[in-house]
Design a protein around this nucleic acid. Structure first.
Lengths: 346, 346
DNA sequence: ACCTTTTTGGAAACCGATTTCATCTATTCG
DNA sequence: CGAATAGATGAAATCGGTTTCCAAAAAGGT
């Protein structure tokens, strides 16, 4: 601890020690020019000896590339985001990228601040989840900011969003939502409620629309008063469920915007002696641990995180290399049926 | 998208536009030298006009400081780690630091690779959770690597670990474990089992020891065969519980190494018609969402994430600035009693 | 043996900031 | 009123790599 300010060894030190020029050392470092085996060996030895670690800042400055990526999420505590990041990072590392991670806390000002810091740090690309890329109603100025950062290879993860034109990977949930509703019907369910976010959040808007269509298609009733606003938390689920249960008639299934809300709904059911799945069916979206931890375990629409994140990373790298042709890539989801909707024994 | 390779504007461009020298621009940028109000205004205008963002790589190279921190966790999907990071990042940003986050996947080689990348990127400090800082039996070589990175201000988060001498923030759980066991006793519990990790993981080792002592202190029985190894996952909890229930006599409480395992144990109970808390009490450690999502909600030892992470960040910054005097800082925890152990109505 | 082509490796410029040093101007003081 | 001091600014060196350009050496062809 006391000896911290020990000077870093540089490429010049290695050059001197190996009796060659810095240029030659650099050549063996980058590997993009021929160097005689003899000198190469000598240089490698010295690198080893001195435990030389090339300064990535200097390199980045020189070649104008940092091999780092900025990754912005609303809230890394949310397991949906942390799982996407986990898988993303796996793939990024294979390509020698490392990521700066920051939480926007769904706050536009903070998001701006973060974007700015990332730009100063000369990240090669940006992954943006939530916030202004997942809204239907934010200020024009903010959209312009996105266009702006579009100059440095951003990839955005969201549900489909017409308002934004940057490379996007989105969850393709439509089919799954139909499947889910069909499954509910098969369990003798005839009416469904929705615990959902606000309409100005894009993902809420889309999922709500798709649920409505699917219910209509399968002939399940969905009264307007059964569509309850809320946030994306357990707490929000409990509150929404409380509100829902004040309706004169109550639906016999509730579909939730994500697993946390579903867990909240389930929790409400437990404390109010409502039997799940006997009295009411509950479903989530995402496929997080929480579904398995709850009892009964929660039926959900499972994101295939591994392939989802790989697509994001691939698209980002392609964008960085200017070889990205696609602008929208869908990622599959599938329904996983668990106890919270299993009424009929097979 | 098409116009990506637009050249970045530099301090020279601004200097030229404002009719001053780059030095002067730099002075207003850093603010550590006087510049006449007149020129300052002129320069600011140009910075605004050009939307100039100083190149942090160049700056970092020049002042030998990157304002980035390397943050290594075993698995960001685990809510314990993501919450610590969330709070950490909040505090770090206030101090103008940004963090590279990587998952070691509890794999030593990967951890080494990551440390190396971070060193090359000249991070100002490193936060290391899990992996070799939380083991009692890893190779001497790996400990040396820690000593090595010790040169660049690391802070390590772990349970107390005698083997490692770097600045450490650790969870002070001893009192909480006593409190927890005392609470179990108050619920007419007379014997407890432990679903725990392996002994060579430091945190398992410590918690196991403390639980043993607390049980002895309060006169609760804890048979060796009730201490079941396992990992830190829901799956692990289910398996461990399965194993435990094959014992001739079964304890009337199980304390789990973390909340995930507790959720697994609870899940096992549900599917096997064991009543919680009627037949058996279950407790976790960490205080994650999962405790509230489960039913009954799980009694746990709650980490005070906000203050925990703040301590980590403060200690790291102090280390960076060479003003860190402490080598070990404890962080408080407290018991939160919930349904999974509430047998007696008050 | 001589000329051409290919390898190899060094000198020096460059990336974009900061900072030291020196200069010049303006102010203060005896 | 001249000397001393303070304040503002520019020139140039520096951080540690990469890369271009060129020269020397080696290899190949006739």
């Amino acid at each position: 601890m006391g000896n911290r300010p020990k000077k870093n060894v540089t490429i010049y030190d290695i050059a001197k020690a190996a009796n060659v020029s810095p240029a030659t050392v650099s050549r063996v470092l980058t590997g993009n020019a021929r160097v005689s085996e003899e000198k190469k060996k000598l240089i490698m030895e010295q690198i080893e000896m001195y435990d030389f670690k090339p300064n990535a800042l200097a390199r980045g400055l020189s070649v104008n590339k940092s091999f780092t990526i900025g990754f912005i999420v609303p809230d890394i505590k949310n397991q949906y985001f942390s799982t996407v990041y986990y898988e993303f990072e796996k793939y990024a590392l294979k390509n020698n990228y490392t990521a700066l991670v920051a939480n926007s806390q769904s706050n536009y000002e903070r998001e701006s601040q973060l974007l700015n810091m990332f730009l100063e740090k000369r990240v090669d690309g940006i992954v943006l989840m939530g916030g202004r890329v997942d809204t239907n109603s934010c200020d024009k100025k903010y959209y312009e900011e996105i266009e702006e950062i579009n100059k440095i290879a951003p990839v955005v993860i969201t549900s489909k969003n017409e308002n934004i034109k940057v490379p996007t990977v989105y969850l393709d949930e439509e089919q799954s939502i139909y499947d889910l509703v069909s499954h509910l019907k098969s369990q003798n369910c005839s009416s469904v409620g929705l615990l959902c976010g606000y309409d100005d959040i894009n993902v809420s808007f889309i999922r709500r629309k798709q649920f409505r269509e699917a219910c209509k298609f399968y002939g399940l009733e969905m009264r307007p008063e059964w569509i309850v606003d809320g946030d994306f938390s357990i707490e929000g689920g409990i509150k929404a469920m409380t509100k829902l249960s004040q309706c004169l008639k109550v639906p016999d299934a509730v579909c939730c915007i994500n697993d946390m809300v579903a867990a909240g709904a389930l929790n409400y059911a437990h404390t109010n002696n409502i039997d799940v799945p006997g009295d009411i069916l509950i479903t989530g979206i995402d496929g997080s641990y929480i579904c398995e931890a709850a009892y009964p375990q929660i039926t959900t629409i499972q994101v295939e995180y591994e392939s989802f994140a790989r697509k994001v990373c691939q698209m980002l790298i392609d964008s960085i290399n200017q070889t990205c042709s696609k602008t929208e890539v869908p990622s599959k989801t599938k329904v996983i049926v668990r106890g919270s909707t299993r009424r009929i024994l097979k």
